[in-house]
Every structure is written in C-alpha cells, then in structure tokens.
C-alpha cells in the first residue's frame, strides 16, 4: 500500500458561472520514504495538488487515499490532526510568527498536539539543532537571514516527527547559496526516513529528488527517476 494514492484526481476552482479547471485527472502513487519533486511552470496546478495531498484543500472529483483511507473519510478535526501529526509544511514565504522567538515558532505545532508539555522544549531544541540554528533559538525572525528563516520553518515542520514533509517552493525566496543549503537539509530529512515532497519550478532544486513528477496544464506530463 502506497502512502499516497491518487487516481484520476481533478480540481475545478470557481462557482457555477466562471469555472477554472486546474487539475485534469491526475493519477500517481508515492511510497513511504520517497523523495519526490513535483515540477512545472506556474499555473500547472502543482500547488493545488500539494494542498490536496496535505488536506488543506479538497479535490472536485477522483480518489485520494492517504494511508489507505479516502480523503473524504477524514473529518475536519481528523484532517487537522493528520496535518499536525503526520505532515509538516514548509512554505515559500516561511510564514513564521513575527515578534516571536525561533524557539516559540518551532514549538507552535506542539500546541495543537497531544504531546505532553514537558517534552515541548526538548523536542523544539532538537529540531532547531537538526537545522543547525541552536545559536539562534532566542532570535526573532526579523533578525534572521532568509535562509535561516526557512531553516526555522523546516525545524517547525519536523518538530513533531511527521512521516511526510511538504515543501512548497522552499527555495523560491532565497539566493542560490541559501537555497542549496536549505535543499541539503531537506535531502538529509529524507535520508532519516521522512517522505519528502517538494514543489518547485527550478530544475536544479527538483533534481535533488529521487523522482520527478512533471506537471503541465493540470496533467502529469512525465514521471521520471531523477539522475542523481
């Protein structure tokens, strides 16, 4: 059983009058422990696909199974719980809370978890250490560089040891040096056993993965093993 199973998935935005189809019948599967890039130009539907996979959005038609269970069968609370426990998100724009320390930012997912509070500090510190920012844990986001901010976001995504990490254009707002540093960390996460799904339009970033799904106009154009 694949971790993610997608069959004939379609998504149409808009109400009755103006309808914008974004995904047209996409099918693929992703196994536990894979490192996959979803690549495509802007407007190809790759972000929408990631949102559906991450329970942030719902497909219009088709089947999506996570851990063998259909997405529709997850209720609102349960979906939130899945996002908290099994999934970690890294966004292009970091989305850190301003005027809140690195440590507190990384702890944020634990607030919504069942993890006992006495473990929060050590878990957050461990995650910050994993991204090499221990010396910055009391800093606020505004005092950090872009690359450092994205590493904080990665620490936040992995603090609850999720099985999957979603990264939506993680290097999009970074210079190439910080970008490759961030991707280095993302690749390490995969070697530690996390399933990693990265969305990008940059070939260089995509090629760090084991497998690349090429998306164009809402369809999978090519599903290839990356040449590492």
């Amino acid at each position: 059983m694949a971790l993610f199973e997608v069959e004939n998935l379609a998504k149409v935005y808009g109400d009755g009058k103006v309808q914008t189809p974004v995904l047209h019948g996409v099918s693929f599967g992703i196994e536990q422990g894979e490192f996959v890039s979803i690549m495509g130009p802007s407007g190809s539907g790759k972000s929408t696909l990631l949102h559906i996979l991450g329970f942030l959005d719902k497909a219009t038609s088709g089947v999506y199974r996570f851990e063998g269970k259909r997405a529709e069968e997850y209720g609102e609370e349960e979906a939130a719980h899945m996002r908290n426990e099994k999934m970690g998100f890294v966004f292009q724009t970091f989305n850190l809370l301003a005027r809140t320390s690195v440590l507190e930012n990384v702890k944020l997912p634990l607030l919504y978890s069942n993890v006992p509070e006495r473990l929060w500090d050590s878990m957050a510190k461990k995650a910050i250490e994993d991204v090499g920012l221990s010396h910055r844990s009391e800093y606020e986001p505004s005092q950090l560089s872009g690359g450092e901010r994205q590493r904080v976001a990665i620490a936040r995504a992995l603090v609850n040891s999720p099985s999957v990490i979603f990264a939506d254009e993680p290097t999009g707002n970074l210079d190439s040096k910080s970008g490759s540093q961030v991707m280095e960390i993302v690749a390490q996460l995969n070697t530690k056993g996390h399933t990693v799904i990265v969305i990008t339009h940059e070939a260089e970033t995509a090629e760090r993965a084991d497998r690349i799904l090429h998306l164009r106009d809402g369809r999978i154009e090519k599903d290839e093993k990356a040449a590492r």
């Binding site: 991450g54 942030l56 609102e76 609370e77 939130a80 719980h81 996002r83 908290n84 426990e85 970690g88 998100f89 966004f91 989305n95 809370l97 944020l108 997912p109 919504y112 978890s113 936040r156």
Partner: peptide, 14 residues
Amino acid sequence: EIGLRKAIGATNRD
C-alpha cells in the same frame, strides 16, 4: 497567521 496555524494542525475550534 490563521492559515499557518490551520496548516500545522489547528482545528476550527482552536
């Protein structure tokens, strides 16, 4: 902020 909190696991109730 609300979007982020939801993405990392906050329920509507939270």
